[in-house]
């Protein structure tokens, strides 16, 4: 047990990431609830009609199971095994690219990567309103699918490492976090 504890190291949440659901720009579907997302990714919903779009089959795009996003989305949104028909791609950029070129595609990944695709608004359940993954909504805890990005260290930071970590957590460092498309933790 003691050995395990020393192996665990130090965990520093340094940024907030909104997991965004990507859709093709022409897609008329504006919002999805977490339940609907889960149904889509477990192939219980296979047609756009059922979530308020035109009559078309949904193509699922996701990440490889070696990806943290894969596990996070599975544990917090899908809550079951992904459908076998979900295409797994090596990298969020590949997912974004695939959705960009597929009118009926849906994908997920960090908000920072979304370029040329539409963000889907996500609501917690049918009684709530749907929100975009914006800085404001994430700070107010309104957008449902968020996660922390961590720095890990073997030991408590000291010296130059501490200076860097403190800088990253300072308002100046958090500005950089926001600049690259993630969301500040404070």
């Amino acid at each position: 047990m003691q050995k395990l504890i020393t192996l665990l190291g130090v965990e520093i949440p340094c940024a907030n990431d909104g997991i965004t659901v990507y859709m093709h720009e022409s897609n008329p579907v504006k919002e999805l609830s977490l339940k609907q997302l889960s149904d889509i990714y477990t192939a219980r919903i296979t047609n756009r009609k059922e979530v308020g779009g035109p009559d078309a089959k949904i193509t699922l795009y996701g990440r490889e199971n070696s990806s943290g996003t894969y596990v996070f989305f599975k544990e917090n949104v899908v809550k079951a095994d992904y459908a076998a028909s979900c295409q797994t791609l090596p990298g969020t950029a590949a997912v974004v690219n695939a959705v960009k070129k597929d009118k009926f595609g849906i994908g997920y990944g960090g908000a920072a990567y979304a370029e040329g695709v539409k963000h889907c608004m996500v609501k917690r359940d049918d009684n709530n309103t749907a929100y975009h993954p914006t800085e404001e909504n994430i700070a107010k805890n309104l957008y449902s699918i968020t996660r922390y990005l961590y720095m890990y260290m073997r030991n408590r930071p000291t010296g130059d490492v501490k200076k860097f970590v403190d800088w990253a957590l300072s308002s100046e460092g958090q500005k950089v976090v926001a600049g690259v498309g993630y969301f500040p933790v404070r």
Binding site: I5, G9, V10, E11, P13, Y152, M153, R156, D166, L169
Partner: peptide, 9 residues
Amino acid sequence: LRPEAYIPG
């Protein structure tokens, strides 16, 4: 068992 957190001074 989780990694410990770091809180700056």
